[in-house]
């Protein structure tokens, strides 16, 4: 017989399951998980973008 988990559990189940064997990169002494690398990469991208992207000049200013 097919049993479904209760409705809230189904609604709250994550579509992307990050459990399971982790993915790691090795580079000499450095070992880093892909997840951490993505987080750090996104932080660097956000920082560089925040500095380089032109900030809109408001009309009221002039």
């Amino acid at each position: 017989m097919l049993t479904l988990p209760p409705l809230p559990a189904r609604l709250l189940a994550a579509p992307i399951d990050l459990n399971g064997p982790g993915h790691y990169l090795h580079w000499g002494v450095i070992q880093i998980s892909v997840a951490n690398l993505v987080v750090i990469g996104l932080m660097l991208i956000a920082f560089v973008a925040a500095i380089l992207l032109p900030f809109p000049r408001k009309r009221g200013r002039r």
Partner: peptide
Amino acid sequence: PAYMSSWIYLF
């Protein structure tokens, strides 16, 4: 201040 013209201020 008028010099606050960068996205970096949002963080």
